[in-house]
Design a binder for these strands. Structure first.
Lengths: 258, 258
DNA sequence: CATTCTTGTTCCGTTATTTGGAACTTTGTT
DNA sequence: AACAAAGTTCCAAATAACGGAACAAGAATG
């Protein structure tokens, strides 16, 4: 409910950080002044504080960028993610078995946040997708995750979604989404039939613990031209087995909740 | 000069974030209360604000962790790093030619911040080293970077270093460091002879632009048992060539400064 | 070269937010 | 059920942020 507006001192500060992060081109002071509605003096002090804290940096060419401390903090957060760690070997196996890109994502509100990704081509690098989020209603992982939520959690969530059409097949109503989720509940498998990006489809399976404090999913993504829908469907058991295996590992490694 | 103490509202807030990040085990409220010297009420509100902003999250088991927004911001910062992008193909080539781990790091004050890493074994994952920093005086990249700084920048920097012995060969005095840097300036190549970690050595070369607004380095790291010092030395031309190639690409792709 | 306009930085009285003690509620334990 | 510990809310007092204006530094213009 907050995030970009700016309630309180911290909110305003983070708003500035966000504006810098969102900027298409490295912003200078005057650019920020326009984008953040604040008097010069105030903005200047805010930025000074942010620089002091290492969240923002002023480069020699007088442009502002995100500070190293953000990366430093984030990389720790990522390493420490027990869930990601537990799931990793399973993602690799799934990739070995299918040869296609495998994603791990967690549901955060109405967004899917990608924690990990395994793909072959782009061998060694921090992958673009990791650390990014996508809407839940048009991604395999998102729909898989939604499908395991209890009704009283799900309904208000769906009401919050501002549906947006990405492709011809994007689901753009709560009713249609509910229907789709019903189907997913039958099979335990979700598909993204080019709903987010034309030419890309995926198959996904939900991952969750008993009290639904963790609601996530894995997916196998492929371009339609290489992998036919029928092929994707053939991976149903495979991905379901992987998801189950991760669930089991979670029970063992992340402390079983009674 | 700040970073963990906490001047101003933002500083205090970031201090809390840092404490959460540094915690060995997921902290609960009472843990934070001990670690941050603050009254309960105050701390509680600070954390609430941090959660509101997505910098911290309260997990269902009542422990606190870093929020997703940090990863989200950091991943953008990383992707946008023009320098990293330019250097990447060269890192891969160097890895292909040597078979050993290749690092890319930038100098930030007296620390080396690792922007990228290419290694074979640990094939596909966000690598632990990325996003972390190490002291400049006991790493190849750090010493390579220091060696290209003008004297008036270098001296105050060295004065700020609090030397710490990591191994038998760690440089622990400003004088010794200066001497070492003189040698590096002769050859344009730096070595880390097990100065940071026993059994690990590396060869490094500096990367910098004309006005020294970018001071960085690349290194090839290997365990001593597999790669003898003589072998490491043989890679001198290779790594120097790579560094030069990156410097050239920077001139072309990052706008030539007159 | 002087002038003007733009951009960036500092200052300080006013204003609004943070502070922290205490009271209160919830959760877990004997 | 009673008790203790952990976590949450409240509000007058303290403090830090605010923002207008004055100031400084560069860049563009005549």
């Amino acid at each position: 409910m907050a995030q970009t507006d700016g309630t309180g001192t911290l909110g305003k500060a983070m708003h500035v950080v966000q504006v810098i992060a969102d900027a298409q081109t490295p912003p200078r002071f005057r650019d920020l002044e326009q984008m953040v509605e604040q008097p010069k003096g105030t903005l200047h002090r805010q930025i000074s504080n942010l620089i002091e804290e290492g969240l923002v940096e002023l480069r020699p060419d007088q442009t502002y960028g995100l500070g190293m401390r953000l990366m430093s903090l984030a990389s720790r957060s990522w390493e420490r993610s027990k869930f990601r760690e537990v799931a990793e070997p399973h993602l690799h196996q799934l990739h070995r078995e299918t040869g296609e890109t495998v994603h791990l994502g967690v549901l955060r509100g109405i967004e899917v946040f990608y924690l990990d990704k395994v793909e072959s081509v782009q061998s060694v690098r921090m992958h673009s997708q990791i650390g990014h989020s996508s809407p839940c209603y048009c991604t395999g992982v998102g729909k898989a995750a939604l499908s395991v939520l209890p009704r009283q959690t799900l309904s208000p969530l769906i009401d919050r979604i501002a549906f947006q059409r990405f492709t011809d097949s994007t689901i753009i109503s709560g009713k249609a989404l509910e229907a789709e989720l019903d189907e997913i509940r039958q099979t335990g498998i979700a598909f993204d039939n080019q709903e987010h990006e034309a030419g890309i489809h995926c198959i996904a399976a939900p991952i969750f613990n008993s009290d639904r404090s963790l609601v996530a999913g894995i997916s196998i993504t492929a371009p339609v031209f290489r992998v036919a829908p029928s092929k994707l469907t053939q991976w149903s058991e495979l991905i379901a087995a992987s998801a189950d295996a991760i669930v089991d590992d979670i029970k063992i490694r992340m402390g079983p909740k009674p």
